[in-house]
Write a protein that binds this DNA or RNA. Structure first.
Lengths: 357, 357
DNA sequence: GTGAAAGCGCTAACAC
DNA sequence: GTGTTAGCGCTTTCAC
């Protein structure tokens, strides 16, 4: 007799729209209109319906609504990894916006090219499941966006940019310029670079752009680009450590390093310390993000408004879904250099450059 | 004529189960059985159906399936905050399991008591939306679980424990004991504690339990408990910094501090450094979690298998949903002390304790 | 302003 | 082994 005895049983059946209709003495159509705030409902009727619905603890079944409308009231966040500081911040910002607007936020890990392809495929798991998706650091081109749009999906990209769909990005050239010019201005000439894989399977373009910006800045300063000074840190702490360890055992190691993320920069600091080097005396390091802990370890970094980027992306997506697309298509967030304690002038070394005439 | 012209239009209508049925020359029921691997389908028929479905790029509409079955094939992760390392690790582990099993993972931020209450309420947003939910560090009691079960929802808790629903936890007493005994064994007697709010609005019990374990360990060692030595760090870096700053300006400051999370420990390190103190010479600090960056800053900490905890929780939940509940109800994950560079013996001070007879 | 009824696309009896 | 059919609970014309 105890309804809670079998946890898998539905227990006391929940009120349906019909129950509300009967109890309020109106039709289900009226209940539907009244509860959703649609016009053509007498104020008195609406009030009564709302009243009854509350008493019955009525909640529309989302699945039924989805089936009838074709809209899922859910959006997806497609991410390459979850255990990254940047992504969890973005997610945090996006979640707040989505929940405020009554949208479910579904997290989809897209690790590796097969996963990416299958997500973008014709018979994707996105189908009818969400109304839109924001791709974080995942390569989608205009064809992909068009194909998704054709199926009624709104799209926003982060990191990556396409011509057709809204995005929120930062000026990657500027990021690299700020970091590299800072090191140059301190007198560094041998500057290491810690980034992602050369040929990223997910076509993640941010590292490519930061690298280009780094090179451009070096060239502008007349500093020769040494391919040996580039390490692959995969945007993780340990990846950064390993990559930095590699650079440090070069015959002519860098006196400074630009890590494309703070997490890699932390790894670089670890590698330096493991080698008995002092930061910034022996080697300077600058990162990107302004991670929570950057202030703790005194990391010089290029700051970006991470959580804000997440909420803007979600906003852009929801506006697109609801048709309130008055917002500009491509948002560019500001970045700025935060100088802390991991950067300083290089130690005077055998002044090779001074040999010049 | 371009179907992609209006992105909000459905475009070329996707195949429904009926289309597949017609094309395969069978009934929709057979298609449904064939595609879901149910018995009572001739091998040849099944093969043909699968073939046709593939050609038509058919994907069942999840909303329709949900409405018909009452199962949503989705689960929720209810979290108090998103920008915590611990939570994003757990999420990462859970996402992998869910996606492998074809379940959607919905993230729900539950910040503050009103949000908690509304989530647990009769007419909750959980209703019919998910098949189960894992509560991370959110207070749910047996009544809550019973009420949710009554509505057909599976529940798993993390951090918190109830009598009736599965959980994955760590031995919080052990955590505190490992940390505090380590400090005691080094000779510390004035040991600070960095935790959460005294009266947590979400009823988050972990800090309470760690605090109890800390006190018990101190008492066992005959060390008097000084309430002044307890700071509220809210499990964030900056919270830890502020709390630690408070402890450090005490007339008789602690020589060591036990932070209930690595993030607070990082904050504590920052506060110490800002005060010109050296770690561990002037003050030792030990945390909990073994954060990615703990190794970088050399933090002594009590390690727990965070991502694994997330995947186990998801597994427990899915097994509960599918009825494959052969797994034990309460999983306890192992913890261990990782000694690094932030702890050492205290400086010899005016030996007040030596005045004793 | 309100109601009747036809779906939305699928699943699950039940019949054959 | 396969088909028929009645829902699942909501939205949305179209009448009135």
């Amino acid at each position: 007799m105890d309804p809670a005895a079998d946890p898998s049983s539905p227990g006391p059946r929940r009120a349906t729209i019909e129950d509300v209709a009967v109890a309020a003495g109106v039709s289900v159509a009226t209940v539907s209109r009244a509860l959703r705030g649609l016009p053509h409902v007498a104020p008195a009727t609406r009030q009564r319906v709302v009243q009854v619905a509350t008493e019955l603890a009525y909640r529309p079944d989302p699945a039924a609504a989805r089936l009838a409308t074709g809209r899922s009231q859910a959006v997806a966040l497609a991410v390459p990894v979850l255990n990254s500081w940047y992504i969890s911040q973005v997610e945090s910002g996006a979640e707040a916006v989505c929940s405020a607007d009554g949208y479910d936020l579904i997290i989809m890990g897209v690790t590796g090219e097969p996963a990416r392809r299958s997500l973008l495929a014709e018979e994707s798991s996105l189908h009818r499941r969400v109304d839109g998706v924001v791709f974080i650091d995942i390569a989608v081109d205009d064809d992909d966006v068009a194909r998704l749009a054709e199926r009624g999906l709104a799209v926003v990209t982060l990191g990556n940019v396409t011509a057709t769909c809204p995005s929120v990005t930062i000026d990657e050239d500027e990021v690299a310029r700020l970091a590299t010019e800072h090191l140059l201005s301190l007198g560094h000439r041998r500057i290491g670079l810690l980034g992602g894989q050369r040929d990223d399977p997910l076509g993640f373009s941010v590292p490519r752009r930061r690298r280009a910006g780094h090179h451009a800045t070096l060239e502008r300063a007349g500093v020769e680009i040494d391919p040996d000074l580039e390490g692959i840190g995969n945007f993780s702490v340990m990846g950064g450590r390993d990559a930095m360890a590699g650079l440090l055992q070069l015959p002519d190691p860098p006196t400074a390093v630009f890590a494309m993320s703070d997490e890699m920069a932390f790894g670089a600091m670890l590698a330096a310390r493991e080698r008995g080097l002092d930061i910034p005396r022996d080697v300077s390091v600058v990162g990107v993000d302004d991670h929570d802990l950057s202030i703790v370890v005194g990391l010089t970094t290029v700051q970006q408004p991470v959580a804000d980027i997440g909420s803007r992306a979600a906003r852009l997506l929801l506006d697109q879904i609801t048709g309130a697309a008055a917002t500009p298509a491509h948002i560019r967030s500001p970045v700025s250099l935060v100088v802390r304690a991991t950067t300083s002038a290089p130690l005077p070394r055998r002044q090779e450059t001074a040999e010049k005439p």
